[in-house]
Design a binder for these strands. Structure first.
Lengths: 104, 104
DNA sequence: ATCTTGTGCAACCGTTTGATTGCACTCGAT
DNA sequence: ATCGAGTGCAATCAAACGGTTGCACAAGAT
């Protein structure tokens, strides 16, 4: 289960990638358009977009000669749900252990 | 807002760290105990535990001369909630754009 | 008192990663 | 037909990362 999650988290564990995602969250944009308002090169952005695309957080949309990218909030929400499930499961286990400890 | 999230995701974006977390999810354990059932050295595990601790995913509990670590599911669930909020916000923006586009 | 188990540093190493520059190509606009 | 904006690919580089080994030290267990 976590096999699918880990690459997503790795993708989300980078400040630059978040600046890209939040920019795309406002409106879809191409790598060049993003390069215009972020302090890094277009090629660096392209690599980040490729990473984000591979984990399904972003989707390329060809518009004429340029390639716009759209952020996919649904993937993020799906990841959030899985994460919450794991968190509550662990919390449950902890509670169980505590209960047993009290029974000494 | 994301400033707090990013290091957490970076911590979660590593397979080994998940194997540690899932092990701790079953029951609290020390670095040495974890080293006994994971294929990496105790020192490597100690570093991972330090990282996990810094982002609040794990908590050290001194027991005699050893240091047990407890996984904190609540932190994970909290992260999940924030993530979901962001995801739905982006989805909303996309829907808005689509609505505007239809209005042409 | 001694032995052994668990920790904590520190140095070191290969690989991965984020970013850069440079070049070639394509396709829409003029 | 030409110009220019947008893209893709490759080589390169410094820094960060995951991991190892070695050593020193503290504190239970015998």
């Amino acid at each position: 289960m976590t096999e699918i999650l880990v690459p997503v988290f790795a993708a989300l564990g980078d400040e630059t990638r978040w600046s890209i995602l939040t920019a795309l969250g406002e409106a879809p944009a191409s790598a060049s358009a993003l390069a215009a308002r972020l302090p890094i090169s277009r090629q660096a952005i392209a690599k980040h977009l490729e990473i984000l695309h591979r984990v399904g957080l972003v989707e390329p949309v060809p518009v004429g000669r340029e390639v716009r990218y759209q952020v996919l909030g649904l993937e993020l929400s799906a990841t959030a749900r899985r994460l919450d499930a794991i968190g509550t499961a662990w919390e449950q286990r902890l509670a169980d252990i505590k209960t047993i400890a009290e029974g000494l």
